[in-house]
Computed example of a mutant assay.
Amino acid sequence: MFGPFRPSFVAQGGLLWKNPFRMSATRKANVRKRLRDVDQVIAAVEASGVRCKALDEALVLPKESEMHARDKYTVFSRYGLHHRKSLHKVPKFTKKTQRTSPPGF
């Protein structure tokens, strides 16, 4: 009960979410792969001849190969340090479409 494996209470300072400070190389590779997969889907839908507003907005976004590393692995955050936030700290970041930053950031 009082040994090294006793349960720690969150209210007493235990970590609830164990997010690493930096993204690992594996996570970065998975992000790049996910971006390339999205690019392939957008290209396939465009080639099929379907037109819609969502496709027009997606065609304006830069491709994975055209993006800066800053935009691949971080997103704009109003409250973050230097207005950037690491991508793995954003909930459901795979569903966000933030490939570009606001002007000036």
Rank of each mutant, 00 (worst) to 15 (best):
G14D: 15
G14K: 14
L16A: 12
L16H: 10
L16F: 11
W17Y: 11
K18C: 11
F21L: 05
M23Q: 04
S24I: 08
S24N: 09
S24H: 06
S24A: 03
S24W: 00
A25R: 07
A25D: 04
T26F: 00
R27S: 00
K28P: 01
A29Y: 00
R32M: 10
R36K: 14
D39Q: 02
D39H: 02
D39S: 04
Q40W: 01
Q40G: 09
V41P: 00
A43N: 11
V45N: 03
V45I: 13
V45L: 15
E46T: 15
S48T: 07
G49N: 04
G49E: 09
V50M: 09
V50Q: 06
R51I: 10
D56W: 08
D56V: 06
D56I: 03
E57C: 10
E57T: 02
A58Q: 06
A58E: 12
L59T: 08
L61F: 10
K63G: 10
K63H: 04
K63Q: 06
E64I: 05
E66F: 00
H68E: 15
A69V: 01
R70W: 09
D71T: 13
D71R: 03
K72M: 11
K72D: 09
V75I: 10
V75C: 10
F76A: 05
S77T: 04
Y79Q: 07
G80V: 02
G80M: 07
L81E: 14
H82R: 10
R84D: 12
R84M: 15
K85R: 14
L87E: 01
P91I: 03
K92G: 09
F93L: 04
F93R: 04
K95R: 13
K95T: 13
Q98S: 01
R99V: 09
